[in-house]
Design a protein around this nucleic acid. Structure first.
Length: 160
DNA sequence: GCCAACGTTGGC
DNA sequence: GCCAACGTTGGC
């Protein structure tokens, strides 16, 4: 199956690209949105590219790169009564929520800010800039993924 | 902290 | 099945 590309949001106060760099891999637990869940369960494949996005950040934007390192499994946080994302309706036999594993690839030298994406005419199709878009896991076109990777390279060159 | 946009819940 | 009420997301 062809490699796909994703944007995955995380609040850096909770889990930033630096956390992922330290951990190297993490289970993407806590997603409680059906559309986002379905992308993980049905569409994500090992090796898919991930733009690691910092939401609720100053500024918000793409902080680095990761890739899918394991297919979706049951999200254990749904069974944890002490968790803020506990789901009383879920059972071990019939889990409601799933998560893929994500592995660190790179931290951008300079964060590609949401505003930078907004003003770039070439990136106008990206879901993340659509008004009211709250989807925490979104598909990304390969061309957009490559372009954003390239923007980081450009920054590196400018600095010499 | 504000609030617009969105998703979910539940009464009817 | 409709839709008002509510809770959450996330930029600003």
């Amino acid at each position: 199956m062809a490699q796909k590309f994703w944007l995955m949001k995380s609040e850096p106060d909770t889990y930033s690209i630096d956390h992922l760099k330290k951990d190297q891999t993490t289970w993407w637990e806590g997603v409680r949105n059906y559309q986002a869940r379905n992308y993980m369960v049905k569409d994500m494949q090992v090796g898919d590219g991930v733009l690691f996005y910092h939401s609720n950040a100053q500024p918000p934007g793409v902080a680095g790169l990761a890739f899918v390192s394991h297919l979706a499994v049951a999200d254990n946080s749904q069974f944890d009564k002490k968790s803020s994302v506990y789901d009383p309706k879920a059972t071990k036999e019939k889990p409601n929520w799933f998560c893929t594993q994500v592995q660190f690839k790179a931290k951008f030298k300079n964060l590609i800010s949401l505003n930078q994406i907004k003003v770039d005419e070439r990136l106008k199709e990206m879901i993340v800039i659509k008004k009211g878009s709250r989807l925490s896991i979104q598909p990304v076109q390969k061309s957009d993924f490559d372009l954003i990777c390239g923007l980081d390279e450009t920054e590196k060159k400018k600095k010499g």
